[in-house]
Design a protein around this nucleic acid. Structure first.
Lengths: 132, 132
DNA sequence: CAGTTTTTTAGAACCATTATAAACTGCAAT
DNA sequence: ATTGCAGTTTATAATGGTTCTAAAAAACTG
């Protein structure tokens, strides 16, 4: 199983649940955006046994902390995550709440001229809201 | 009262509560960021009578819809609003959850090269996360 | 003022997320 | 293998921000 090493190297025990969640999240050609509920549904579809919601929350947060997932800053009642952890941005379709990846090359370099004392920049994220 | 016209022109009846909320939001030198709970507290501090939480939510959403307030896309359990409705961006201090305005001139022009059919860009927002 | 519509309000409801505490599992040491 | 223990999972309860509800109050119109 290819995710066992990955998990071990992060200090996460390769449990059955984590491995199954890895399959759902990372065994795909394309990266994707999801909410916890959408992931829960995806897991139910792909896997026979069910995984407790609490475990899904725990695992997603653990993976985020390890850098295998990113949270997307959008105003919604649910939290959106992204399996695409490369530096990139998002279109946000206000009509249906869907996100579309915007590659860095589609935005061009962003140069933050102002500095905040004692702080360093962790990430720069651009959200482009779309309407009809 | 200077906000009566503003409200009437937006199709909002100038009620006592709305006018008081206007005072708290717009009678300041500087613009500011707030959550509903922070606004509730500010209202309690400045005004004698109390305004129901439901009214505060209703009013803030009405003002946002009319363009007098903006929601700030940040991942938090609470929704952040901004009385600064000019085109601008934000630093987000991960340590304490505080926002700092980033003027457009501090970021430089952002050129979105990709287009989505049938959609137009409503806003472009940059969030710069800060860590120690 | 009378009638109508909008707004406010307290409280209930909603629902995503987090906390709890008991059962279970992975794994290192024996 | 077996044991012991820290790390995980689980169902369920709790939390807390936000929205809903329905009745009372206020604003507007004629």
């Amino acid at each position: 199983m290819k995710y066992i090493e990955k998990l071990r190297n992060s200090g996460l025990r390769p449990t059955k649940q984590r491995l199954q969640i890895c399959e759902v999240l990372f065994d795909t050609e394309k990266t994707f955006h999801f909410t916890i509920n959408e992931l829960d549904q995806k897991i139910k579809d792909k896997i026979n046994n069910k995984i407790s919601l609490a475990t899904i929350y725990n695992t997603v947060h653990a993976f985020e902390k390890k850098g295998y997932l990113k949270q997307i800053p959008v105003n919604s009642n649910q939290t959106y995550f992204d399996t695409n952890i490369t530096d990139h941005h998002h279109f946000y379709n206000l009509k249906d709440g869907k996100l579309i990846d915007l590659e860095n090359s589609d935005v061009g370099p962003i140069n933050i001229k102002r500095k905040i004392d004692g702080k360093k920049i962790k990430s720069i994220e651009v959200l482009v809201k779309l309407e009809d």
